[in-house]
Design a protein around this nucleic acid. Structure first.
Lengths: 180, 180
DNA sequence: CGTTTACGTCAGCCATATTGACTTATTTTC
DNA sequence: GAAAATAAGTCAATATGGCTGACGTAAACG
């Protein structure tokens, strides 16, 4: 599932790879970074996919479990906004997670219309395993990159996010940290 | 389409964000990197999505145009191996791209069973635009990160790829570069 | 009391992927 | 030269994960 396996590609040499060394590129064309990000992300999500398919879940379930674990007590509406999907799409995934005992819903204390979302022990364990898998990949990669790479990677990844939305993502992360 | 818009998430504080500062973490928990990569990749592909939907295409078309542009004359079997999808899945996408004049197929010179894939001028222009969009995001991000960031990002991204497949990805990239 | 809000759900649609079985053309092998 | 293997295309059925629109219900707001 995490396989990229670009094996034995004896492709005829003649292509469109511009050197593109015009503005402090350090000799690295952007198209290389584009392709590396593509493959890196593919393997990154592949880690989780393997575990998820065994449970009959998909990436949608992963995202829900992850964010609910990070933000216990979040409302359904909050989750919809983070995931940027529709109520209907979330509905099926959420129902499956609730039915299988990964997520719990509790009516809000002040506003009883709200169904606040919490991970059940089963869901917390799944979230923990998923984070552990991906943590391992980051740890290995950053270890190869030497000291300072973690801070550099953090800065780089944050910089790749749309500037308008970066503050909100940082707020989301800060909100989830510093608890427990 | 690139929107993440995690706005106004007034989520109740009480969570599972482990500090996880145990093995040279530079104070940055891996879960932060995981989430940043998630949002970064989302915006990264969002750039291309906007352009593609206007043409009635999806991400599958993007991948095909990109790789055929980088590897002109590749066989259908090669493309299947890179994309890791089935012949049947590729079929529809490829047909649409050919019908709309983005991709051309030519019978192989030595083996006439092969339908070698080439981008038509229209397809080359689309590939160029898509790369330009994503190049812009990398350029902005790396500019924010200061000197040396490009090389560091390249190393980091390559390190995130499964070790077994890294060599093949590097070969693929090297193969596509150094032409034209 | 009427409106709005939070959530859920029914029904239908679309895009992208899957598997299996089969055809056609062509090359390779014996 | 006939048989087998290969490259590609296609048909049919299925799954997943999104989408829109419409509607229902309970609770809160004003």
């Amino acid at each position: 599932m995490a396989d990229v396996n670009v094996s034995s590609l004896a492709i005829s040499p003649k292509g469109a790879g511009k050197t593109d060394d015009s503005q402090g590129n350090e000799g690295i064309p952007a198209v290389e970074l584009i392709e590396l990000l593509f493959f890196a992300y593919r393997d990154f999500v592949g880690d989780a996919d393997e575990l998820l398919v065994r449970l009959g879940f998909g990436r949608a379930h992963h995202r829900v479990v992850h964010f609910v674990n990070r933000h216990p007590g979040m409302r359904v509406a909050d989750l919809l906004e983070v995931l940027k999907i529709t109520k209907q799409s979330l509905g099926r995934v959420l129902r499956e997670l609730v039915d299988n005992g990964y997520i719990e819903q509790k009516a809000g204390a002040t506003d009883r219309r709200e169904r606040l979302l919490y991970v059940a022990p089963k869901g917390e364990e799944l979230a923990r395993q998923l984070v552990a898998l991906q943590t391992r990949r980051f740890a290995r990669a950053l270890n190869e990159c030497g000291p300072g790479a973690r801070a550099a990677a953090r800065k780089f990844l944050a910089s790749m996010i749309d500037p308008e939305q970066r503050a909100e993502v940082e707020r989301l992360i800060a909100n989830a940290n510093g608890k427990k």
